[in-house]
Design a protein around this nucleic acid. Structure first.
Lengths: 241, 241
DNA sequence: GCAAAAGTGTTCACATTACACCCATGG
DNA sequence: CCATGGGTGTAATGTGAACACTTTTGC
């Protein structure tokens, strides 16, 4: 009899986990990229008979000696060759029958990367970028996971300047604005957008211009990581609903 | 050899999970309550020798035939007797050595309930409400989980009107304001607060007054769930960082 | 009557929105 | 010279912040 009202419990009393070891744990990465004015996600073909020729997220079982987040980074590294990529946990999906092989709990991570810098590595894999709009059906509950991560992406880019992870180091304001518009699925006023972005002080003017564009070249900017680190120290309190 | 570049993978090819069944999966509930102008959390004593007499969140192993969220609801029901309580997934914690008994992945949920309506049931358990400010050390990584959930609570009450779950059905504007101030740890201007709340149209004026208060009685309000359901259909797009 | 909180409006600063014209480049 | 997007400012509106006095109750 424990002090917890007679209920042996993993948090309150010494229990053996023998009976508890009935789960497999995986991570799935929703890897967003941006190319040709289109938001894309990196998918792989699923060979399970249950989901023949359907698309699947990049995921794998977590190793017994591996932290969840490390497993997600490993998948990114193995599949894309990238080491320092934006990655953040989104949500865990654990419905009973979500995987035909048995009880598999999966934690979804979303990742943002700059497609142009990393195209070559993908040739080694059976991976493909898919326009988000063209994805209807996916293996497992991956469509639901993707939708959740896309919603999180939409919300987060309005709260934190993570969007720059999808762009090359140098970008024009036009590119940045179109990217916002693409992800949020809205149109933004160009002058107001510029004003807004400049007042954040997060853009470094590179004093360079676009080249080989069939119109007046725009200035190029980079994201000022140092300035953002300063800004983050400030807090905000409000009630908005 | 699968199409996935020769890597057998849980998402791409038929694999047996025998080797994957090495995890225990649990859920932990961070149950917030509000009493005597204090934000509290419901904890239980931990009897594990490693964490002798330290406090622990309410959690348990997920049953093999049970969804994650159902496991969290079960814990709430078993511990508090409550059925319809606000509950939301926050984050999953899976560090290798977070549990001394073995590899345990835990998904944290946070819950909001109205303490006054549900005091009696707790007598059957070794549960206690703890003022959030008095909690320093906890068993496992539960302090980290609690901090994460508290941060999520602070953020969410500024985005969605979930705070009403912590109050009785009838409340005065004063009570509501003090609750906001307590959770956010700020002082709010009373007139601006009233204006703001009234313009949301989420409060139903019950045409009742406080009684037995040693000052001018305030009006009582209730949260208008129906109105909020209407509001939720609208969207918002902005860039705020 | 005193302590304590209820109730109530206005002003100011700032942020957001809407909106139109000329400029530089490639073809 | 034409198509395309770059670059710029102002006025109107809306939102958030600051702020003081009278009222009602219990004791």
């Amino acid at each position: 009899m424990t002090r917890a009202g007679g209920k042996p419990n993993i948090n309150t009393s010494p229990v053996t986990l023998g009976a508890g070891f009935q789960f497999a744990v995986s991570v799935d990465c929703v890897i967003f990229g941006y190319e040709n004015n289109t938001l894309k996600v990196l998918l792989i073909n699923c060979d399970l008979p249950e989901f023949k020729d359907q698309w699947s997220l990049l995921g794998d079982l977590v190793h017994p000696d591996e932290d969840l987040e490390n497993a997600a980074y490993r998948i990114l590294r193995e599949r894309t060759g990238l080491e320092n990529v934006f990655l953040e946990q989104v949500q865990t999906f654990g419905s009973i029958n979500r995987h035909p092989a048995g009880r598999v709990i999966t934690t979804a991570y979303f990742s943002l990367l700059n497609v142009r810098d990393h195209q070559l590595k993908l040739l080694n894999n059976d991976l493909h970028w898919h326009s988000l709009k063209d994805i209807s059906c996916m293996a497992f509950d991956h469509k639901q996971i993707l939708d959740t991560c896309y919603f999180t992406l939409q919300k987060k880019i309005q709260e934190e300047p993570i969007i720059f992870n999808l762009l090359a180091n140098k970008f024009s304001l036009r590119e940045l604005q179109v990217l916002y518009e693409t992800i949020l699925n809205v149109e933004l006023d160009r002058r107001n957008f510029r004003k807004k972005l400049f007042t954040t002080n997060l853009l470094t003017d590179l004093e360079e211009m676009e080249t080989n564009v069939p119109h007046r070249p725009g200035r190029l900017y980079s994201f000022n990581h140092r300035q953002y680190a300063e800004m983050k120290k400030k807090t905000f309190v409000g009630i908005d609903f």
